[in-house]
Design a protein around this nucleic acid. Sequence first.
DNA 1: AACCGGTATCGAAGCGCTTCGACAGCCTAT
DNA 2: ATAGGCTGTCGAAGCGCTTCGATACCGGTT
Lengths: 337, 337
Amino acid sequence: MVTLAEVAQHAGVSASTVSYVLSGKRSISAATRQRVERSIRELGYHPNAGARALASSRSNIIALMIPLRTDLYVPVMMEIAIAVATSARTHGYDVLLLTGEEGPDAVRRVAGSGLADGMILMDVELDDERLPLLRATHQPSVLIGLPARTAGLTCVDLDFWATGALCVEHLAEQGHRDIAVIGEAPAVYERHTGFAERTLDGLRSRARELDVRLLHRPCQGGYDAVAVTLARILDERPGTSGLVVQNESAVEPLLALLRQQGRAVPEDMSVVAICPDQVATQSSVRLTSVAVPAQEMGRRAVEHLVAKLDGRGSDEVVLLAPELTVRASTGPAPSRA
Amino acid sequence: MVTLAEVAQHAGVSASTVSYVLSGKRSISAATRQRVERSIRELGYHPNAGARALASSRSNIIALMIPLRTDLYVPVMMEIAIAVATSARTHGYDVLLLTGEEGPDAVRRVAGSGLADGMILMDVELDDERLPLLRATHQPSVLIGLPARTAGLTCVDLDFWATGALCVEHLAEQGHRDIAVIGEAPAVYERHTGFAERTLDGLRSRARELDVRLLHRPCQGGYDAVAVTLARILDERPGTSGLVVQNESAVEPLLALLRQQGRAVPEDMSVVAICPDQVATQSSVRLTSVAVPAQEMGRRAVEHLVAKLDGRGSDEVVLLAPELTVRASTGPAPSRA
DNA sequence: AACCGGTATCGAAGCGCTTCGACAGCCTAT
DNA sequence: ATAGGCTGTCGAAGCGCTTCGATACCGGTT
């Protein structure tokens, strides 16, 4: 391994000069800078990460805690993770991948060891057990998701309340008076995952305001589970003419089932999905949907964290405004017989 | 931050003694060990990662390079990534997430800076540009996937050649003589991704041996693309009675299309998928499939890398034997009219 | 001519840990 | 009784970097 000292010797300057060339923290004459840069190139020098971290107490690493469960909204998670990794690099940071497995201990470990300079948490529950630790350790952090109490925290998320409201509005405008929600898996609600509950709140509030009947049913992904859920919904509310789906893995099965039952989309049944655009445009019917802006969430989270690490930036809740794109899966409610 | 020295003082021993308690590299009397451990607990000590890395030239970090593209076989990637992160932790390693974006430079950066002790590469192309660097830098590494030349490399992968062969065998046994393959997106073949080409080789070889006609068509995921591909296939080979699908995102669209066209699965058309079990069991027809053992691949990759880092283990190619599970999507070929 | 404020560079200390050699004490074998 | 071998502990060096004075030199003031 080539060291700073070797570069310094090769360039005929002191080690500190090389360091200042690298960091730009003191002015260096153009001549010296060029000589040093040349030596760096010729020797193929790379600063040693450990030494740097020790001396500067900065690791230039961001920890990203992703949920362990691989069964839930996976593509969204992946997209966020990749967006985080990519934009972290543009700010000079690397990303350490932590799975939820360790739980709060991971926070302790990372904060205690100086492994990472800050962390980004995904899959935040309303009353997440990692939060007290985060506040206590003063670990710079950004949440993707919104817990119940946000005091002293920075959060980035889609405004799921508004998302729910928007879905109902769109269907109500088209004359639908009986709407059903095919939600996330029961486990998601049991864990009090913020986004699921807030979506539901938004749906219900607006439904009440617009005098629309709303039925909510959690639903595991997969064909069979969707079949059961749909049957129950239609049994309980035969007049249902609008569906809101918040579970990527329920989308295709649902469309298949409706087709099979001879219910045309959107003539007999309108469907609004909450999912990434990719899912909405690749499905068998182009879905009217509210996009989950995974990439932007990842990017924003990194930007806020970096701002904090630079001493800029403050605690703040960033809610991205939902956008509903009308595609081919929604239309006027069928006239009542 | 609590330091080693403070722990040592608190326990009334020297710093090196604490270090040896932690690492177990020298024998320590039970009494001393307990005193030290107690101090560690009471003070809430966590070793500083940077200092440790500097002194020991080991970071206890494994770099994982995942593909940047989020359009391809995402759930598999995610599952592997999580398996890697999880099993790395059981060996005392953390995982650094690199996206393909930086390409070969990432290898240089990581190797040069001592950021990670070794790396795991995913999405390996047959003639991957990262490989020469890997060999040159003697960076301990494991590939998930199989390049053209494996000399001096450790690789873990599903035996895709055998997988292809197995699919053909199964269909041939059931009397199918005309088989079509709905493959990965064209881009995947253009990049010469190992697994796609090897699957195809396996399919073709066995088809030739068993005197089965085989038609291969790459296919982007999504409903429309599958519709086009399927139409072309049936146009070109109307007698096709067996399909092999190697593209997760083509599975549901395909089933929907077949249903729509009045082709019953498996009575009129048998379908074999190459996909994770979860996809095969959650689809509208339970699919006969060869599982992609994502978790095992991740776990094995970590184990081999850790073995290398410990000085055990050697270059080796590990091909996992494919297993075909018969479910409801394959059956005897329809008798020829 | 003495002085000042910049600018460019150097030297040295120190970040918190690992690890090597030294050594004190003790037990066993002769 | 003495040499030899263990076991358990300590001290010090050093990993490669950052960063804080200190210093030397420059041109421009008074």
